[in-house]
């Protein structure tokens, strides 16, 4: 996503650069050189790889194993085979939290066009105070999610919240946004989109700035206005960026937890929110089973299910990209 020198470049796929950074001479080199180069390569990625293996890969494998077991409250587990997975299939809470999570994910994708539009607007020449705008957009990203959720909890309050106060000025009697089953999911998704906007915006801005200026100059000479330039140049050339953002955003939405946990009620009391069945997410259900009712084996099965869904949706996106992503 770095700026290019303005030449029409080839596909900018990751991994096309040589690993060791040296320029590769034309012919084949002696085998010993290649082996030693590979060893050095592995040595350099070893610290990161080790961390990944110990803190990510190993827990995933363990969780996979534990999903076939049943747990005592204070540890100790017994192998129960596919029991947890059988239970998954008939648990209404699994079904509904899955539906809710997919709905969040779909709504979260709204953030992508929004971020592109804002990025294009922020990139306009002659716009003053871009630094201020960018800071404002990025602020939610660097703010603690819990703090963000607490502020929104107040904004959304049915009786005393700012949102309904403003609506009342124009004669609208606003709902209890996060306690009304009809609005809660949308209200939460809106906060999700809002808080992720800054992050997506920065990536799109970088993407836009990587588009060679000559294209716009040529288009202007041919008589294309800013709107036409946006749809004919910016949008197609941003598609690799949009693809990246959509993959990241789908994975993030599928793992939604803290926002709902703080904003709409946590733990046992969260269940007293009338909207709870409509907003409960998969990770939230995992948390309740693992830490509230001490059903850790079952909780492990729930996240394994989520892992499979994430892998499947990501694979699907990679397959679909041929249809809409233009590289270079």
């Amino acid at each position: 996503m770095t700026s290019t020198d303005g030449q029409e470049s080839g596909p900018r796929r990751a991994g096309s650069a040589p690993a060791s950074g040296g320029t590769r001479p034309g012919g084949r080199r002696p085998r010993r050189d290649r082996v030693s180069e590979a060893l050095w390569g592995y040595a350099f990625i070893a610290p990161a790889g080790l961390g990944l293996a110990v803190f990510h890969l190993w827990p995933v494998l363990q969780t996979g194993y534990f999903s076939f077991t049943q747990w005592g409250v204070f540890g100790g587990h017994t192998w129960t085979g596919l029991d947890n997975y059988h239970r998954l299939l008939t648990d209404p809470e699994v079904a509904r939290s899955l539906v809710n999570t997919l709905a969040y994910t779909a709504l979260g994708l709204v953030g992508i066009p929004l971020a592109i539009v804002f990025a294009a607007l922020l990139n306009r020449e002659g716009l003053r105070g871009t630094g201020v705008y960018r800071t404002l957009f990025f602020l939610p990203v660097v703010t603690m999610p819990v703090a963000v959720a607490m502020v929104w909890r107040w904004l959304y309050n049915g009786e005393y919240g700012l949102v309904n106060h403003v609506l009342a000025l124009v004669g609208i009697d606003g709902p209890h946004w996060i306690a009304d089953p009809d609005t809660a999911l949308f209200a939460l998704a809106a906060v999700g989109v809002w808080s992720g906007l800054g992050y997506n915006l920065i990536i799109f801005l970088a993407g836009i700035q990587a588009i060679p200026k000559e294209f716009y100059d040529a288009a202007a000479i041919d008589g294309a206005g800013p709107v036409r330039q946006f749809f004919r140049i910016t949008l197609p050339l941003l598609s690799p960026t949009a693809f990246f953002v959509s993959v990241i955003s789908v994975i993030g939405s599928l793992q939604l937890f803290d926002l709902v946990y703080v904003l709409a009620g946590s733990g046992l009391t969260g269940r007293a929110n009338p909207a709870f069945p409509r907003i409960q997410t998969v990770v939230q259900l995992f948390y309740d089973r693992a830490f509230l009712t001490d059903d850790r084996g079952y909780a492990a099965a729930i996240v394994m299910m989520l892992l499979v869904i994430i892998v499947a949706l990501t694979a699907l996106q990679f397959r679909m990209q041929k249809r809409w992503v233009h590289y270079g």
């Binding site: 990510h56 969780t63 995992f286 693992a290």
Partner: peptide
């Protein structure tokens, strides 16, 4: 948060 939970569970 999700990763933390999974990690914590692992630990």
């Amino acid at each position: 948060a999700a990763r933390w939970c999974a990690g914590a569970l692992g630990v």
